[in-house]
Write a protein that binds this DNA or RNA. Structure first.
Lengths: 221, 221
DNA sequence: TTTTACATTTTTGAATGCAAAATTTGGGAT
DNA sequence: ATCCCAAATTTTGCATTCAAAAATGTAAAA
């Protein structure tokens, strides 16, 4: 199906930042680039608007969603809640094999931490959280989590990570894995909340920096 | 804007159950009824599909989303998580005035309970939960909560309520209000989880009943 | 020189048209 | 009479077209 594919491709363009937040989305240009007519493109844009990645302005076109610092904090709070819920549910349902896989992923992530490879560390970090969400066995939750993380993904990766914060995050991840292995739902929920709260603080700082950069970029352009 | 309006109208049609879950959505018919062409209708259907209210089948049209019991339980779990999160956040931010308003709504709900007016009781119940979510001051959370509750709303109201369960629900609501007034976030979160867990059990039973009814309806039709 | 009013252009929003896929219908064979 | 296969009809998906709104550019007046 064409329009499904289009949604994915535009989503990728937005998440890659190729169209930066706040920028206009030129229908005509995208139509040429994707070799489609305006009808499926517009359908895709409306789907993405429902997801929160695109803002539609009546008679003034669509723009890549521009998130304020407040928006970002709100989304992180929701993300925190969803991860905590996933952790609790996962403890009730997770299999030994899944715990083993997450343990392996964790060890890999720690290795990237020791090697100082932030990109790979983030990748592993994300994989672990996604594995926990998947282990909850709740597709509705998985879908919402995917939607929320997609909206904050870009900010997540511009986070300036200090050695102290990084060490803390790794330590928290040890505790997460531990609680999972003990299948301690309440404890895991608690840790995940604290874990994301720390992340949130990081991202808020990054958010300010990025906002300034964007403003600057807009003025230059 | 036309298509925005169309989304709302079709959503209402679906939530009213005028097009029952699992039934085909006839484009042609709806176009005539809403006096619009197929383009905005199809845009609206894709938005509703992104919301989870409509299922799109390639080259086979769209159907009103048919939720399995598993889907229902999943959504209730997510709803539980969001309400618990909202409760925690609300405790940090809620004003005395908002607590007062919720207290008033609570008293009203209890009055409807005493009068045995289940419909009005449900209405008040929903208003309270929505007020708590609103008090969290997190629009992203509010939006997701609205989306999730929309999908389970119909099931919520077909719940067969026994006197015992009803009494328990009212009691739990007393505890919710109490925790809010004490601004005890952790406690409120705990209560809300238990509160919805009880509800979930009710709805699961109702879910089975409704499924049978739908099957029957499909066979007749 | 600046501002405002108007015309032109561009872009958005919705309707229509057309090709492909699926469902339905009718005929024939078993 | 039932089952199966093919043709006709309906419906879906996308492209194109048309109308309306906004942006832009120009010219005239203050």
């Amino acid at each position: 199906m064409l329009h499904e594919d289009v949604v994915g491709r535009i989503r990728a363009i937005l998440l890659d930042g190729e169209i930066p937040p706040g920028a206009r989305i030129p229908e005509r240009e995208l139509c040429e680039r994707l070799q489609i007519s305006r009808t499926p493109l517009r359908e895709a844009l409306k789907v993405l608007a429902a997801e929160g990645l695109v803002q539609l302005l009546p008679h003034r076109g669509s723009r890549a969603a521009k998130l304020t610092d407040k928006d970002m904090r709100d989304l992180f709070e929701v993300c925190q809640g969803l991860e905590a819920l996933a952790g609790e549910l996962a403890c009730e349902r997770i299999s030994d094999a899944e715990i083993g896989a997450i343990g392996t992923a964790h060890d890999e992530m720690v290795r990237h931490y020791r090697e100082g490879d932030l990109i790979q560390y983030y990748r592993g970090n994300r994989a672990i959280h996604e594995a926990i969400v998947a282990a909850a066995g709740n597709p509705a939750l998985t879908g919402l989590y995917a939607s929320v993380t997609a909206r904050i993904r870009r900010a997540r990766y511009v986070t300036p990570m200090t050695p102290q914060r990084w060490a803390l995050a790794v330590k928290e991840h040890e505790a997460i894995l531990n609680a999972l292995q003990r299948r301690d739902g309440a404890g895991l929920s608690h840790i995940l909340r604290a874990h994301l709260r720390h992340k949130r603080e990081e991202v808020l700082q990054a958010g300010f920096a990025e906002t300034e950069a964007n403003d600057l970029g807009l003025r230059i352009a």
